[in-house]
Design a protein around this nucleic acid. Structure first.
Lengths: 350, 350
DNA sequence: TAGCGTTTTGCAATCGTTTCCAATTTAACG
DNA sequence: CGTTAAATTGGAAACGATTGCAAAACGCTA
């Protein structure tokens, strides 16, 4: 489809510059020529070449999104939201799936840079702080989501994990549970640490001793969740409730409970982290702490585009992000469904 | 990060062309200069500008993938596979999520064209054949997956839905089922039609009359699945087995069976289409006909890249794809797990 | 050392836009 | 109708790479 601006200009008997201005909008051309050029361009089937434009303007209209996978529900909705928002704003999404692997992440950040993305939203592994900082220094705005990257000072949008984990644990405590198992993520990520700390805070506040045996930290995988679940259930005094701080681990837990023919919530209460449609469709419907993936994505896009626009505005900017590396939190929400039961049967009746 | 080829060239005291050739590989420069340039480029932190390169070479190194959503397991793995394969081949994936909406699809095809993608993999709605044909005519190779677009003659990679549905139905028949409910997709898509026809063929072959009341065609959504399931179960003589031809509808079915406390497979056998990890983790593990999403994606990438390379090779090509609009099928696979039971209890014993 | 073929290099054009600057047209007013 | 300011246009130089062509350097052989 090789019809270029020059072709349009010739057909309309004007110079390329005029054609450019007419089609570019912004009233740089007279109303009359604008209409005419628009018409002719339409007839010829002209489509502006984003690549050429990008070369001149230094904007690729591409934004990178780097996540771990698409199996996780949070990442799914983030990808969907980011792409929808970007599209509405005239950007396209370059999706990179790095599997939480620093090496791959590093590679992909490189390619993203080569493609001169206008900005980047990333769930950092935490091992490529230098690279991310380099991008930022190279005038490519970076926004981290879900986790913080401790090595680099970057604008970051996080779920309120401390609060979410706290609220969830409190909820279980409120139902009368005293032995609450926790299956949580790796402790070398901010989200993993924060979810654990929220849990601990709630216990302390209720004067419940923290039992190390009830806490399992590991990768976010079904298998890991299953193993942790079995260990917990095999304890001399097993927990009466489980708080599973991630969607994938929850799969493993559900499997084990089904295998052992445990009834949820009668035999065991289950509270998960990160919502996913099928938790709602599952019977019993699984109660969750919704980390607000949708909000995370929206806010990340907001922040990123704010900075992209700012950069484009006064190119002679003071440096990078004036406001320093801000950190935003979006609220986590407890969604009560049917997988947690009260341990004090008659308490609220009578 | 504004270090350009010119900067590298100056630092090395050679011309830009030499620098280009040295870094471009292909032995266009002497071994010595190549080493030197590589070193200097490294020191300066030079990264080639894909945009500028793209303008000159006419290759964006971008490939579009247009799908309906990310909630569907097939699309998830397709997106993951496509992006992994492309990355390995030096391309980036532009992911567009069009929600099976022709208007959005049309828009997105436009933007994709503006970005001069080198090729495009699309799950067509079927309403934009003209647009797709236009892309193809404009020298952007297009490969359709999952569904065919009847309006345009395009290279297409399909699951073997007729065979898959046939095999699934036959399996249920083999277990002794005679009344088999079918919850299938819209009949204005090739996949929807083919899954239905496979079902019918199996019934005919077993001399079972096709009962219209047992067949529900509709959108692939949990709610639709739930409604269909209720209707089927409320029949005077309800089916003893359900064949649910899509992953999302299956969610609705699982909900209804749980609500009614039906035991799977004791009260009702359930066979689904499209595999997803949690079908395996679910108890009972759900038997499925795996449509081979991974294979679909791989083959689509193969075909697409084959044509991209061909185009780049002899630019003075004969026209478009010489071989005509070929159609490929990847095999569907029956995965027996625990959700289907035999209706003839003692049959195989004794 | 001259001559010849082969590498290796540099120059300059080019890809399709945007945008600065100057030139031209148009409009407005005395 | 002349003058001036404002709006509109055209010319040309970028943006950062690749690549055809010709010149320069090199390695051989005689």
């Amino acid at each position: 489809m090789g019809v270029t601006l020059k072709d349009v200009a010739e057909a309309a008997r004007v110079s390329v510059s005029t054609a450019s201005r007419a089609l570019g909008g912004g009233g740089l051309a007279s109303e009359r020529t604008q209409q005419r050029l628009l018409r002719i361009a339409g007839e010829l089937g002209y489509r502006p070449n984003t690549i050429a434009r990008g070369l001149k303007t230094g904007q690729s209209r591409l934004v990178g999104l780097l996540i771990h996978n698409l199996a996780n529900a949070s990442f799914q909705v983030m990808a969907e939201v980011v792409q929808a928002r970007l599209k509405a704003l005239g950007y396209q999404m370059l999706l990179c799936i790095a599997g939480d692997d620093p090496q791959q992440e590093s590679d992909m950040l490189g390619t993203l840079a080569d493609h001169r993305v206008d900005g980047l939203i990333v769930v950092p592994t935490g091992r490529n702080g230098a690279r991310l900082a380099a991008l930022e220094a190279g005038d490519i705005p970076v926004v981290c989501v879900v986790r913080r990257d401790d090595e680099a000072e970057l604008e970051t949008v996080l779920a309120d994990d401390p609060q979410g984990a706290y609220a969830g644990t409190r909820y279980l405590i409120g139902l009368g549970h005293r032995r609450i198992g926790l299956i949580v993520g790796r402790q070398d990520t901010t989200s993993g640490r924060e979810r654990l700390s929220g849990y601990i805070r709630a216990l302390r506040e209720a004067d419940i001793a923290v039992d190390e045996a009830l806490i399992h930290a590991g990768r976010y995988e079904p298998e890991t969740g299953a193993v942790a679940c079995r260990t917990l259930l095999d304890l001399a005094t097993p927990p009466t409730a489980l708080f599973v701080a991630n969607h994938e681990s929850a799969l493993g837990v559900l499997r084990v409970t089904a295998e052992r023919r445990l009834s949820i919530p009668d035999d065991l209460s289950l509270l998960c982290y990160e919502d996913t449609p099928w938790f709602e469709w599952h019977r019993p419907a699984i109660s969750v702490v919704d980390n607000g993936a949708r909000d995370l994505a929206n806010l990340a896009v907001d922040r990123l585009l704010h900075r992209i626009e700012a950069r484009n505005g006064h190119n002679a900017g003071n440096g990078h992000n004036a406001e320093g590396a801000r950190e935003y939190r979006v609220g986590a929400r407890l969604v009560k469904r049917d997988s947690c039961r009260s341990l004090a049967p008659q308490a609220s009746e009578a």
